[in-house]
């Protein structure tokens, strides 16, 4: 692992993105435990432009934009990370089994994956959330459902490559069970591109959550960047700050996770190893 770290640190953009993500995590944590601040608090200062009192201005109900954006980090990170974890877990399980055992299992898993990939994901997500309700759990589940096929495909491809390497046969001749071989020998050697793709799913999930919220397909009790953007767009010409700052938060965060994913992928890629 120190080798991985060493190589990861060589990617400046990835490093900056990593630092930004760490900051986000810290913000989410602090806002979670900090007592006495209510991001929903309505004041008389509605739609105040950015000033010393309100660094990023206020919205139409006089709520502080900065507080809202900081609290919105919780939702974005929680949704992004849990959806990515779930999708990666599901994708790795199905993709690994599919690539390793082949046959009808492979056929079935890949056809189902294709089905999810050809349907326009955003429309599907909007329909499911509209039908099932607007809680965060639903959003996470929908994103999981939409994102697992890409992870499954990558895992399957890597497993197909790794399973024909000689060391797999060598271990087979030691009398190990097939599932043991898959779990202990094949999957660990197939994880590098999967982890990179998993990081990219975080970005996709954040974007999808923001999009759903923007369309109003999320609960009004939740402070979310997408919801703020939704509120802001009605006043785009009177109060630009209501749209620009949540948009910027979404943009930077999605960009950071993308850069992070690229860096993780490059650092884990054995081909970039110099011997």
């Amino acid at each position: 692992m120190p080798r991985f770290l060493q190589r990861f640190l060589a990617y400046r953009a990835g490093l900056a993105a990593g630092a930004y993500v760490a900051l986000l995590a810290l913000v989410a944590l602090v806002t979670l435990v900090l007592p006495g601040v209510d991001p929903h608090q309505i004041t008389d200062h509605a739609m105040v432009a950015p000033s010393a009192a309100h660094l990023l201005g206020t919205d139409e109900l006089g709520r502080d934009m900065l507080t809202g954006i900081l609290y919105g980090t919780q939702v974005s990170l929680a949704v992004g990370v849990s959806a990515a974890l779930g999708a990666t877990l599901l994708g790795v399980l199905l993709g690994a089994a599919s690539g390793f055992y082949g046959g009808w299992l492979d056929l079935a898993v890949m056809r189902i994956a294709e089905m999810f990939q050809v349907v326009p994901s955003f429309i599907l997500a909007a329909v499911i959330v509209a039908l099932s309700g607007t809680g965060l759990t639903q959003v996470v589940l929908v994103i999981m459902l939409l994102a697992w096929p890409q992870i499954a495909r990558i895992t399957r491809g890597e497993v197909l490559r790794v399973k024909q390497l000689e060391f797999v046969d060598a271990v087979r001749c030691l009398g190990k069970r097939e599932w043991e071989i898959l779990a202990a020998e094949v999957v660990p050697n197939a994880m590098a591109p999967v982890l990179a793709a998993g990081t990219l799913v975080v970005a996709q999930a954040i974007l999808l959550e923001a999009s759903l919220s923007f369309l109003g397909l999320s609960s009004a009790d939740i402070v979310s960047w997408g919801r703020m953007l939704n509120a802001g767009q009605r006043f785009l010409f009177n109060a630009w700050w209501m749209s620009v700052f949540p948009g910027l938060a979404i943009f930077l965060t999605v960009l950071a996770f993308n850069l992070l994913g690229d860096a993780v992928g490059s650092a884990l890629n054995p081909r970039t190893v110099t011997r």
Binding site: E166, F167, A170, N189
Partner: peptide
């Protein structure tokens, strides 16, 4: 096998 670098994990 031929190449122990690929026959060992």
């Amino acid at each position: 096998f031929q190449d122990a670098s690929s026959s060992l994990n």
